[in-house]
Design a protein around this nucleic acid. Structure first.
Length: 189
DNA sequence: ATACCGATTAACT
DNA sequence: GTTAATCGGTATA
């Protein structure tokens, strides 16, 4: 069943990042429906997290949607090319989010392949996952309880022993916070 | 107005 | 293992 507002508005973004593993992201974009199980996430814990775009309360046109209520999409462009999809959590005004770093496509393979440019191309990085789902910068601020992007718990049971935990990728600039164990991933059969 | 650089990827050696 | 690609956002002036 579809995740509701109460799921996203909870306060523990690290717990939510772990729980999102195995959940299924659905997109209905450009006439195509794609469903993909989340296999890798990272938590970004707001104003006290040096790795977060909202560290120290930074609030700009780019990261404005981080401050929206839980259950909103935050999509930004990285390295001038890649669109990265984040799930905003916690209450409005508290800029917590979970970055979706990897998915496994379950439905809509043809649309995902077309967007990725070649059949069977990987969807195990944040840029490629968003691309396969059709999520772009224009979806920044999209309500995850609407009909374009939503996430559902479809009953996949994730054995906690199979969840790999480690430091986040690409955040060396964050000093000690770069070492926090805020990255979670699973390998689906 | 201008300089710098990134929550990455793909294609290399 | 290494590195070029690529450009919007942000800071600095």
């Amino acid at each position: 069943m579809r995740l509701d507002r109460d799921f996203y508005e909870r306060t523990d973004v690290v717990a939510i990042a772990r729980e999102l593993l195995g959940m299924v992201v659905h997109t209905r974009i450009g006439g195509s429906h794609v469903a993909a199980a989340i296999t890798e996430t990272e938590a970004y814990a707001g104003v006290n997290d040096r790795a977060s775009h909202a560290f120290n309360g930074r609030r700009t046109a780019r990261n404005e949607c981080l401050y929206a209520r839980g259950g909103t999409a935050y999509v930004y462009i990285c390295y001038g090319i890649h669109h990265l999809f984040n799930i905003v959590t916690h209450a409005e005004g508290v800029p917590h989010a979970v970055l979706v770093r990897g998915v496994q496509v379950l439905e809509g393979r043809s649309a995902a392949d077309r967007r990725r440019g070649r059949p069977g191309a990987a969807t195990d990085g944040p840029g490629t996952a968003a691309q396969a789902l059709g999520i772009r910068r224009t979806h920044d601020g999209t309500d995850l309880l609407g009909d374009r992007i939503w996430i559902a718990d479809e009953g996949r049971i994730i054995d906690p022993a199979t969840v790999r935990t480690g430091p986040r990728i690409g955040v060396d600039y964050a000093g000690p916070d770069a070492l926090l164990p805020y990255r979670f991933r699973i390998h689906l059969p």
